[in-house]
Design a protein around this nucleic acid. Sequence first.
DNA 1: ACATAATACGAACGTTCGTACTATTTATTC
DNA 2: GAATAAATAGTACGAACGTTCGTATTATGT
Lengths: 219, 219
Amino acid sequence: MAKAVLTPRKKTIPRRQARGLRTREAILARAVDIASIQGLEGLTVGSLATQLKMSKSGLFAHFGSKEDLQLATVELARQIFIKKVTRPAIAAPRGMPRLWGLLEYWLALVEKRVFQGGCFFSAASFEFDSRRGVVRDRIAAIMHEWIGAITRAVCEAQKAGHLDTKVDPTRLTFEIHGIAMGAHWAHQLLDDKHAYFRARTILLEKLRSISTPECPHLP
Amino acid sequence: MAKAVLTPRKKTIPRRQARGLRTREAILARAVDIASIQGLEGLTVGSLATQLKMSKSGLFAHFGSKEDLQLATVELARQIFIKKVTRPAIAAPRGMPRLWGLLEYWLALVEKRVFQGGCFFSAASFEFDSRRGVVRDRIAAIMHEWIGAITRAVCEAQKAGHLDTKVDPTRLTFEIHGIAMGAHWAHQLLDDKHAYFRARTILLEKLRSISTPECPHLP
DNA sequence: ACATAATACGAACGTTCGTACTATTTATTC
DNA sequence: GAATAAATAGTACGAACGTTCGTATTATGT
């Protein structure tokens, strides 16, 4: 249970080359899915090795510790999130279109089951929110990043004259984020088939109700 | 790993008496706290026994299996939730006061850290939403119950003439629930000190905006 | 009081956990 | 093609996992 927190990491991991990097990728790809289903603690070296038809030791050699594996898994999940949500959204012009892009791609991410077990970060958030250590810190940092991205999009929408400047960006972000997370929850746990439709409707109406006449068309 | 799903539970647990029930209560009280921090899977027989200065076997004798322990833990969490949220809220008169009571007591529950690790059911929801089995089913059923309670309160508020009858109760519940869950998330993971204040403000303004002139005073 | 049942314990089961050390196989480099 | 380094496998470890069993201790009912 108590990790060797004091002993500095000794294990030397060789500088990986093409092949090593490929297997590492394969491992982490699987790890992200397992973690999204079983949680980052439920993600075990043994099950991961079995599923990939590798030996435990061969797999483990790619990481210095389980904590490293968790960290790397979180990192890949972040990359996927950026690729599927943040980046496509940034392709849209600053202002309301970009803000809506963030939300739409986020909802689509979970709806399309890019992570087998629903929203990776919602699950990880609630799994680690009462723990300590680098994994929790990293998850929290990424979520700060995400909240920051939404808040920034709101501010830009105000600067672009698409959104009423009287609304508090932090507060709006809070609302938006809660509703989207509620959609994930209702969809995953309660099998609410209309969860995403409802979330979209609510978010769209919310945004419309505070948008200016100059705001570009919303879907 | 693979549970004996087919074999019916054989283990005979004696009909508990005063003493047995007392220790069982003590076990479960601790279990709820551990589970709210470490999750229902992270809740282990060994750690539970150590913390209670009991033997593993003596503790385990109170339950037929770990699954039973988890189930009993969930059940106690539900009782606590009912005691601290549902029941006090029902003391308020039907309509808007009762609806607001549900929300206020719910937020207070987590703010006052009744469960050491934040919101027990939000954590359990995201931990089990991609699994199968009786534990998941029970959690989902309890959450359905809870959503039902809010929805009913909304309907009553409409019948009482406190709330605009044009609003869709299911949809309003969806919104409300998302925002409250977002508050738990922001508070627990991001250490957002204003999370509950913000959530209250948002919920109150939301309710005010759709309340009728006949609606009793909101806080 | 004595018999019966409830309660708790200690020890052990087989399994899996994360991790470490040593081989062996597979690439790369000279 | 031999030397070197990377990549995987093999084996073993101590601890913890859930669970079972036999036994001692405590309470209850007669």
